[in-house]
């Protein structure tokens, strides 16, 4: 099986990091992974995104043209990636910042109040972690939620490791949400 994902949001929402943490957690469980960030000519306030592929065989192409799964944390990202999604795909979007509902009816849609849930669990900046927890609840094949502790430890620099505990708590809060496709 191969799953192609896009993580997208404002620069600063941690979408590149969320993709990287998923890759490390899935890699720990012996999956093949690849991660390509959007880079360079991104504007402050514009969108950042990363393409992630998780597979249980050699990854042919790390380039994601039509994602199976999209995690979008702001409206410009929803507008950009919803039309590109594969039929039957899974869309997780951040209702804290996106008022409009996704339009597609041929995909499964999960609206999550990421920023509020993150704030309630100790870090208003960790909306990305809420989405990550919810993601592996919805698609358990990607990796176990328990592997995120290892992934955070690997991905986060020594300077910021003090946030790992709260990030892990927020991931688990996302994982424990009652999730129903709309």
């Amino acid at each position: 099986m191969t799953k192609e994902l896009i993580f997208a949001g404002f620069g600063g929402q941690g979408v590149i990091l969320a993709g990287k943490i998923l890759c490390i957690a899935a890699m720990k469980e012996d999956k093949c992974v690849s991660h390509i960030p959007s880079y360079g000519a991104e504007m402050r306030g514009g969108t950042a995104n990363c393409s992630v592929v998780v597979a249980d065989e050699e990854i042919a192409s790390p380039v994601v043209e039509h994602p199976d799964i999209c995690i979008v944390l702001n409206k410009p990202s929803l507008d950009k990636f919803e039309p590109r999604m594969k039929e039957g795909g899974i869309l997780i979007y951040n209702t804290s910042l996106i008022e409009n509902k996704p339009k597609r009816t041929d995909i499964k849609v999960y609206g999550i109040d990421c920023n509020r849930i993150a704030a309630e669990n100790g870090s208003e900046r960790a909306g990305n972690m809420v989405a990550l927890g919810a993601l592996v609840k919805i698609v358990p094949w990607l990796c176990s939620v328990d592997s995120f502790a290892y992934a955070l430890d690997q991905a986060i620099s020594a300077r910021n490791k003090k946030f790992n505990e709260v990030n892990l708590k927020v991931i688990k809060a996302g994982y424990d949400l009652p999730l129903n496709a709309q």
Binding site: M27, V33, P62
Partner: peptide
Amino acid sequence: DGYLGQMSEP
């Protein structure tokens, strides 16, 4: 190329 340089893999 730029994609290879920016890409992360195991």
